[in-house]
Amino acid sequence: MLEIRDLVAAYGPVTALRGVNVHVPQGTTVTILGANGAGKSTILRAVSGLLKPTHGLIQLDGERIDRKSAASIVRRGISLVPEGRQLFTALTVEQNLRLGAFTRSDRRGVREDLLRVYDYFPRLRERMKQAAGSLSGGEQQMLAIGRALMAHPRLLLLDEPSTGLAPFLVRDIFKIVSTINRDQGTTVLLVEQNATLSLSIADYGYVIETGRVVIEAPAHELRENEAVRKAYLGY
């Protein structure tokens, strides 16, 4: 479904990615692991159109999207849950969710998705009239995911959803991500530092270091891989 080939990207003079290849098959959950600053977020920024790569190509179902604007990439079915949530804090929960569906005109579908998001995250329903900025960290992450789901994406990109959350909340959120993948067939590309949890829900994993893929394998093999265990799983 998503094909990233030989991707090179830079922030000004600083090269963040040095030729990355990633393949995300339809319906799977793929995770990209790596330390802070390894270039994980850069991959997602490039896929969602926020950053134009200097070299390489990104294809969605065979169509090149690496030169397209972020606004047109959403319309092709890719939604990003950005690092640090990036909510519209002065707007209500409900308004944030409505903005997530900005590209859609099928009112009934939007309504159904809204109900589905509220089912996944009942806390959001309770707080729908509250300003997004008044939510707790966990609720904000739920809202960020819910907002991305409102676009009814075929491919959901998640950038470090576990950041700053208590472990039990992280577990809840990962459980829901895997539910979304299973129930709706939404393909998931998940970037994480928390390797234990992301490998537990992923089918396939990549490990990147300083802008390059150093290991890639099915998730269960990565869990057994000694180097990965030492560096990212901590045992």
């Binding site: 606004a71 519209f88 707007l91 308004q95 409505r98």
Partner: peptide
């Protein structure tokens, strides 16, 4: 209106507004 909301979202925080598909 959706358009009005989109304008406010753009004013608040441009990058996520783009991620919503808004032509900021």
């Amino acid at each position: 209106t959706a358009l009005g909301l989109a304008m406010r979202a753009t004013a608040m925080n441009r990058e996520p507004a783009e991620l919503m598909g808004i032509h900021t």
